[in-house]
Design a protein around this nucleic acid. Structure first.
Lengths: 220, 220
DNA sequence: TCGCAGACTGAACAAACGTTCAAGTTTGGT
DNA sequence: ACCAAACTTGAACGTTTGTTCAGTCTGCGA
């Protein structure tokens, strides 16, 4: 009330302020648990303004989703053109680099992403498919170059790669509980990146055991 | 109304019927989106009975959680004693076998598990930690037996293994969209099981390229 | 047969919810 | 200076929510 109309927040624009605060609240507590009054209070506007701009709470959700998608896919799409001739490592590096550049806004982003994926919003599938097709594309490329063993399962490998890629996004709260800090902090991130590249390429067995183990497996 | 008081459902016991239907509804739509009236209607009881047995909606949630935990952890714990001397493959096989035996009730189970992980309920962390400690235990065992290359990241490997283990549970709706059927159907399940064991042990690179690739990586 | 403890009902209630609307304020072009 | 359009307000409304409670029904030991 007595505070200035536009104290700290991003823009004096009320609409943008609603969008930002709504995204943050949805990310933290989930869509159903957040009331329009919560949002109005946090954005320092009246409840009426929300429905004036977005028609309804559902309309607000769609607007927030749209804004998030724009931010998120813009990067994935800008990577897509060169993706055809991109190596798997390069794609992962690309994503990691982007993340590093957006690390300040990342906590909200990853939480929102997490909820969107688990709540099965319509575009969750589209994002998943994007990751999936990128994984499969680089797999196909590796295959064409003879970089994939013949016995590797072509059906499941891209899914497993996506699991590894999205795992920390989906489970970071629990990772944080065990590690004491978020798996998205720069050093942990880089280290994980190397770890899963190593895992995908070479697995964990030492060279000497590979022959023995694989022959034993083929005996089944 | 005109239907019999105990038509089809599991037991004539109203309390159990509430518990079962609530678990199913929570799994499908999430706790906040389900009303006590929804549950009462589906369980064919009055709204008063729910609060009579469980005190409140929150009390019902705890009871449903408790029931789910009992079912879920009972198996994990029964596996834990022999886990110390269990090979990683055996543990995965164990879990898969259990799943196969519970495949009829699995859709609800996995959905509930998924939501519990998303909503970060208190026991979600406990389940995650259980998976994590089992993964780490088998990694330690492999390490002691010299079955882990020295350069493998001991910090992230258990997390990555858990990602692979839980990935399909968390993302099955999207897998289903791409594959046309659930990744939990028996044949797909078995095939995925083999695929991630192979990935963890040996990665994807053919033997001939391993030396070249690893030396190139170490040059960084 | 009595009585009572527990299962069960459903109307009623207060609070919280999303939504509406008449009215006030600010903005920008003329 | 004027006005129309857009922005913004907050009280009010109707609905839905979780919860309560007086009362009914049922089974069972005394």
């Amino acid at each position: 009330m007595t505070e200035a109309a536009t104290p700290i927040p991003d823009r004096s624009n009320g609409r943008e302020r609603i969008l930002d605060e709504a995204m943050q609240l949805f990310a933290e507590h989930g869509f159903d648990s957040v009331t329009v009054r919560d949002i109005a209070a946090k954005a320092d506007v009246s409840v009426g303004l929300i429905n004036h701009h977005f028609g309804s709470k559902e309309g607000l959700r769609e607007a927030v989703d749209a804004k998030f998608i724009r931010q998120f896919e813009e990067v994935l799409d800008s990577a897509a053109p060169s993706m055809g001739q991109m190596r798997m490592e390069d794609f992962f590096a690309w994503v990691d680099d982007w993340i590093a550049r957006h690390q300040s806004t990342w906590p909200v982003t990853v939480q929102y992403f997490r909820r969107a994926l688990l709540e099965e919003s319509e575009w969750g599938a589209s994002v998943f498919e994007k990751f999936f097709s990128i994984a499969r594309a680089s797999i196909d490329r590796m295959d064409a170059q003879g970089l994939l063993r013949p016995d590797v399962d072509r059906l499941w490998l891209p899914f497993l790669m996506v699991y590894l890629e999205l795992g920390t996004s989906l489970l970071d709260p629990y990772v944080t509980k065990i590690l004491g800090r978020s798996g998205f902090e720069a050093d942990l991130w880089k280290r994980r990146h190397r770890a899963y590249l190593s895992l995908i390429y070479r697995g964990v067995l030492p060279p000497k055991d590979r022959a023995r183990k694989s022959s034993a497996q083929e005996a089944n």
